[in-house]
Write a protein that binds this DNA or RNA. Structure first.
Lengths: 345, 345
DNA sequence: TGTTAGCACTCAACTTTATGGAGTGCTAAC
DNA sequence: GTTAGCACTCCATAAAGTTGAGTGCTAACA
């Protein structure tokens, strides 16, 4: 059996209608809804074929049809009309916050959630092979030292270190020099025991300060700390009956609250080429690498904060999500983020 | 009508039983449950009295009784058995994180939520009249300056400042001196235009750097930024049928996600004396200053991070919450937090 | 050969009607 | 003051009936 043009039109009509109403779509509706001028009986025959081909399904005998994942997929890949979505407020709001990446990303997530009525998530970009750029110790109070570490990508970390014995100005200066000469330009793998030993020797009785600082550096560079994900609008899923039943909603909300599982989504890359082209990716149902999302769809986009440093933005909603709007919104957003990052960094 | 001892015992039995089961409690149950050796008929008479006094109520004719807010209140104030709750894991887990207050508080929230199966929230303490303790500029790269500001209470803020024209080492040193001599020990109200003008004069062509730093300082000190609240276990409320119906759950979860409204709870102080004594406060239903919580109870405690610097910890759950456990858990936690803060700060 | 009208059939969703049981309030007796 | 007994109420659940949207199939038509 072939998927001729008429079948495609009918499939499209079924999907569109179902996206709008959330109710199974019957043959009579299609007969009126499309400009095919066919009777419901004919449509029935065609729908029967489409069902056999696996694009639509009946939730039960004597009900209308709803799209299968395969049906959605065909729709998203071939029949979706581009609909660029304007979000005027975005630029203004984002510009104000652009100096603090965390706030910016949180803001982006919120805007997306409010605009789409779905749940959004934004991952903080990961810097690979991060190197130490700058270390500085300053005496804040007697017995209190402030260590500031700047990592490639201008990530700043700090820690207050309590001293058991006070530090002279000269010693502080010396430690600063030692730290910077030894550590500058190194990444985690390059800071080895031999190096640490040498630094501690130079620091003499203040060797524990060195240890303290290295801890902070390790923490700053290590992946774990960096897998931060911002979400917004998690409660939006309660607006969609197909997701809001106690169990599903509970699992989903828990996933969004804990965030840990979400890293799987963010890190998943089905097609490297797509990422490099900043393409929008659509996951339908089981396609997402996360069991709880089997009844959801997810649309993700990759943004680039600077050469080679990527983060991801995703929107999660019911399968009958307004794909056109979501994809359009994400595309607009990508453009605006690009502008902001180019300007600011 | 008087509240004699027997009535109290019956009320206590009703509350206890309802806390456990969540079902209206009938006279026959009480008759067996207590050691009063009274027939159900007698209990019925007493319960009728208790209802007239407003401590219990029938959800409908021919159902058992459930406690009213007034009933819970009496129970919490007078009949609750202290039950100190051990949370062994707490100390270990918290000790590791004690150097980063945000992580610590987030961790505390999580522990509470996991231990109690309710929703927890922890507010970051507010420092009043915060003063600038230390300011430092360092050159990270050409055209890139790192500003670090330490506020009283060892709050560290930093910002990368992009320069339009490069800065010499001497100039950096000079700016550092200017900033520190002018700003050290001042709070927001004391940094006025006259002062700013003087500093800018001294900075010469780098006056915009001064402006930039003042912005960061303002942000660091300002209240707004500081009203941070950490929550955990929001989805736990879905475990309680009386809260998990679509509407209530949705409103509650939204409140926990947005957090903004929660500041009302955190800031509410019915009794100043209580706060100073680090007493546990219990809000039942409408007693909480937040409409969405009318079907919930909340238990809060005040912790002191250092002399005069308070934060709040709260647990939100259904009215039929295990008050004894929650209060006990919070008390234990308070002791352990006290220890940690005394040791570390 | 593709299209259509007509009709019997199915099934979820909703409404109505029974049935059972937990619990009460009242009364009369101890 | 306490208690047994009984009529009564009302929720919950199940069972039975009703409706309507939608299908598949057949036979007739262009």
């Amino acid at each position: 059996m072939e998927l001729d043009d008429r079948k495609l039109k009918i499939l499209q009509a079924v999907v569109r209608n179902y996206l709008e109403t959330g109710e199974p779509v019957g043959s009579r509706t299609i007969s009126k809804y499309t400009d095919l001028n066919l009777s419901s009986a004919t449509i029935r025959n065609e729908m029967s074929d489409l069902e056999e081909l696996g694009f639509i399904i009946q939730p039960h005998t004597s009900a209308g049809r709803i799209p299968t994942d395969k049906g959605y997929r065909l729709y998203v890949d071939n029949m979706m009309a581009e609909r660029i979505q304007e979000i005027d407020e975005i630029k203004d709001k984002l510009d104000q916050k652009a100096d603090r990446i965390e706030l910016l990303l949180q803001q982006v997530a919120k805007l997306l959630a409010v605009n789409t009525n779905y749940t959004s998530m934004v991952s903080k970009p990961k810097y690979k092979h991060k190197k130490v750029k700058f270390v500085q110790l300053s005496e804040v109070e007697e017995n209190q030292l402030l260590a500031v570490i700047v990592i490639e990508g201008n990530i700043v970390k700090n820690k207050i270190i309590h001293l058991s014995l006070p530090l002279t100005k000269e010693m502080t200066l010396k430690l600063n020099i030692v730290l910077n000469t030894f550590l500058q330009g190194l990444d985690l793998t390059e800071i080895n025991m031999a190096l640490i030993q040498k630094m501690k020797e130079q620091a003499g009785e203040y060797s524990d300060v060195i240890g303290n600082i290295l801890d902070v550096i390790a923490e700053a560079i290590s992946e774990e700390d960096n897998l931060e994900i911002y979400t917004s609008g998690a409660t939006n899923i309660l607006k969609y009956p197909e997701l809001s039943d106690a169990n599903k909603a509970s699992e989903l909300l828990y996933t969004f609250e804990e965030k840990e599982e979400l890293t799987k989504l963010i890190n998943d890359t089905r097609d490297n080429e797509d990422v490099e082209n900043h393409a929008i990716q659509v996951y339908i149902g089981d396609e997402a690498p996360l069991q709880v999302m089997k009844d959801c769809s997810m649309v993700t986009a990759t943004y680039e904060i600077e050469e080679g440093v990527y983060g991801k933005i995703g929107i999660v909603g019911p399968k009958r999500m307004d794909y056109e709007k979501v994809v359009g919104t994400l595309k607009t957003l990508m453009v605006q983020l690009d502008e902001i990052f180019k300007k600011k960094i």
